[in-house]
Simulated assay, not measured.
Amino acid sequence: MKILDWYILKRYLLTFVMMLLLFIPIGITVDLSEKVGKILENKAPFDEVVAYYLDFTVYFANLLFPLFLFLSVIWFTSKLANNTEIVAFLSSGVSFTRFLRPYLIGATIVASFALFLGMFLAPYASKGFNEFKYTYLKKNKNIQQTRDVYRQINDNDIIYVSNFVAQSKSGMNFTYEHFEGNELKYKIFADNIRYIEEDSTYRLTRYVKRSFENGVESIEQERSKELVFPFELEDLTPVEYAAETKPYGELLDFIKAEKRRGSSNIGRYEVVKLKKWSLPVSIFILTIIAVAVSSVKRRGGMGVNLAFGIAIAMVFVFFDKVFGVMAEQSNFPPLIAVWFPNAIFGILAIYMLQNAKR
C-alpha cells in the first residue's frame, strides 16, 4: 500500500472514531437530561444506570454507524479538497477510481466491525437497554400481545388465550387442542390458566376436557386441575424487542419457531434479521456518495458539502424508517423494505461517482 493509501485510510478511520467520540457523549447527555426525572422517580440503582448507558453507547453506535461514517468522510474529504490536496493527487496521474481505493479499504474495515457488532455484541446491549427502559422508564407500557393470543406450540398442539397477563403469568378463556395428523384427539377448556413457577405446572380453573376416540366423545370436568404443558406463558407472546436481543444464530431459530407458531410479528423479526446484512452494505454506498459529494472544491467551502451531506443522510434515514415501519405493521415484504433504500442510494452512488470521475 502506497503513502497515499495510508494517508487517506488513517484520516478515514481516525475521523470516524473522533466522530463517534464526539457524538456518543452528546447522545448520552441528551438522553440523560430527558430521563433523569424518571430515573430518580423510579429509584433506579446507580450500577444499573451505568450499565444502561454502556448498553446505550453500543446500541446508539450500531444504529447510526453509517451516518457517522458518512459525515466523517464528507468532513475530512472536504478538507482535502479545500487544501487542493485532491487536485494534487489526481494531477499526479492517479485516477479517481484509484483515489477511491483507500476509502473502500476503510469501508471494508468498518463494515466488518459493524457486521460483527450487529451479529453478536449489539443484541446483548439491546437486551440490557430495553430491559432497563421498560423496567424504570416505561413501566406501564404494554410490550406484548395481550388479547386473542393464538399460537401453534408444535406440530400437534395449538392454544388460545383471550386475555394474557405477563406479570402474573396467567390468562383467561384458555383453549388447548391436540391433533394427531389431521384428527383432533382432545380439547381442553378453562376459564383461567395460571403458571405455578414453584413446580412448573399450570393451574386450570373450571377445567373441561373433551376427548375423541374412534368416534366416541368423552368429557372430563373438574373445578381446578394442575397440568404440565410444553410451554411457558411468557414464551407465547415475546416482547416486541425480542428479536433485537438475540445473536444471529439464535435469531434464525427464533424466527423459525415464531413462523411455526403463527406469530403476527414475523415482519418485525425479519426486518431485524435483514438489517444486520444491509447496514454493512450501506457503509460502502454512503462512503462512495460522500467522496463524490466532497471531493470537489466548492465556493461555499466545507459548509456546503456538509449541508448537502446532511440532507442526503436525512433522506436515507427517512426511507429506512418508513419502509421498516411498513414491513413491521403490514404485509409489505421485509426484503424489499430493508434493501430498497440501499438500492436507491446505490444507484445514486453510481451516478454521482460517474460525474465525479469527469
Rank of each mutant, 00 (worst) to 15 (best):
D5L: 08
L9C: 02
V17F: 10
F23T: 13
F23R: 09
I26C: 04
T29A: 15
E34Y: 09
G37S: 15
G37E: 12
I39R: 06
F46G: 11
A51L: 15
Y52Q: 04
V58S: 10
L67H: 12
F70V: 05
T84I: 04
L90T: 01
S92H: 05
S92I: 04
G93V: 07
V94C: 01
R101P: 05
T108W: 03
S112D: 03
F113E: 03
L117V: 13
S126A: 15
G128D: 09
F129I: 08
N130C: 05
E131K: 10
Y134M: 06
V149L: 10
Y150F: 13
I159D: 03
S162Y: 09
S168F: 08
Y176D: 03
E180I: 07
F189T: 05
D191I: 13
E197T: 13
R206I: 09
G215V: 11
V216F: 08
F231P: 12
L233W: 08
E234M: 08
E234V: 12
I266F: 02
G267Q: 01
R268I: 08
W277Y: 14
T287S: 11
K297N: 13
G301H: 13
M302R: 10
F308N: 10
I312R: 02
V317A: 09
A327V: 00
Q329D: 11
F345D: 07
F345K: 08
G346T: 04
A349W: 04
R358G: 09
